[in-house]
Design a protein around this nucleic acid. Structure first.
Lengths: 209, 209
DNA sequence: AGTACACTCGAACGAACGTTCGAACGCATG
DNA sequence: CATGCGTTCGAACGTTCGTTCGAGTGTACT
């Protein structure tokens, strides 16, 4: 409800302040991913961040801003790292493979943040929600553009938008089953499999790598 | 924490009692899907179900049982309807198409329950969690079996389990973007597209329907 | 009429919640 | 030493939470 100071309007702080705030956000993402935004108490976040309850409010304005900062930063760094990864890659297939690899790597290494973005995407309201939504849309459009630049598909799959949405389903759902510590398949191998599955399907018999 | 009376141990009740309880579960699923399990208050559920706050406790033992009943019933009816749909269908491709259609239809018509199952899958604990998990596993294994019975895939996609997990990602993620009222594509058309996408990929050029 | 039972509800309980406040602390700079 | 500021914290605030309790319905059977 309360207005949130967006990142662009924040005052500059000392590097030490930013470091501690980042540490707080990491701890918060862990708690949010474990019990959800509503299920998480500021007291548990404080314990995870090794701060006192009231100490949190020195770094953020409240619980809502914690969620906002995590979500905004996650989508924003996704967009940024995607642009970097795609530089110099021109083959449509390779561009998609690169994008998928970037996505999976990013989330494999920040699983907590992915969970927070997936579970509590609709929790924010007002201008904070819109700010996150803008970054999210920018990322979606980037991936969608890559899909559209692939060779035009057959008639039965005419909606590149739906195909992109399903691609995101594949990529985002893996937080429900992937266990970084226990899984035998590496993140890059998984990304390669998902790329091949999306492009050529499960029944493809010829090798296209 | 508290022990939940599982469905098999429930006493038999009058049909009128079951009807009202079902109405309560529907209302609860709507609220849970809108604001999540933790974000939902019993007072809001009562308002949605047109009951008093304390009236809820005449039909269920508490908030936890509401979540349990919704999740268990959802997965259980998925398993049951899948078995019915598959009767007499022998072609592997057609069996997959049937399963996808059943899944998408079921969730398109019960979007609230899907959201509750996706968002708050890890909320329950103890024997209630295990009971839901058993039904969920049974459903996963049914779909996995259908995938395995497809022609053996090329080497690069050797993990039928991962392919199945990605298929579930496509199928389940659509609650994040599909708007039943506004979307131009019907549920059955969507299911057909998802089946084709999974089997032959986005780049397939020949018609295989 | 009287009893039993299913059902509904208002009022209240203790607990936990997010947030606030003012007093401390450490440590620079005058 | 004294002043100011960034930082941390314990204690408390008011609110909302899930749940309980007992009294109040209406209805069916004796």
């Amino acid at each position: 409800m309360a207005m949130l100071a967006l990142q662009t309007t924040e005052q500059k702080r000392s590097p030490a302040f930013d470091d501690k705030r980042l540490h707080l956000l990491k701890a918060t993402a862990k708690v949010f991913s474990e019990v959800g935004y509503d299920g998480a108490s500021m007291r548990r976040i404080a314990a995870e961040a090794e701060l006192s309850l009231s100490g949190i409010y020195h770094y953020v304005s409240g619980k809502e801003e914690l969620l906002y900062l995590i979500q905004y930063h996650t989508f924003d760094s996704l967009v940024t790292s995607l642009e970097t990864c795609l530089e110099g890659v021109s083959s449509p297939r390779e561009r998609l493979a690169t994008a998928v690899r970037n996505h999976i790597r990013h989330f494999g290494e920040n699983m907590h943040e992915l969970k927070v973005c997936a579970r509590d995407l609709e929790t924010l309201e007002g201008e904070a929600y819109e700010a996150v939504r803008e970054r999210r849309h920018a990322y979606f459009q980037s991936i969608h553009q890559i899909v559209k630049e692939l060779a035009p598909p057959r008639e039965a799959i005419h909606h590149s938008w739906i195909a992109t949405a399903n691609l995101f389903g594949m990529l985002n759902w893996f937080y429900q089953w992937y266990d970084a510590g226990r899984s035998k398949v590496s993140l890059d191998d998984l990304a390669a499999e998902q790329t091949a599955l999306f492009l050529d399907g499960y029944l493809a018999t010829e090798d296209t790598t």
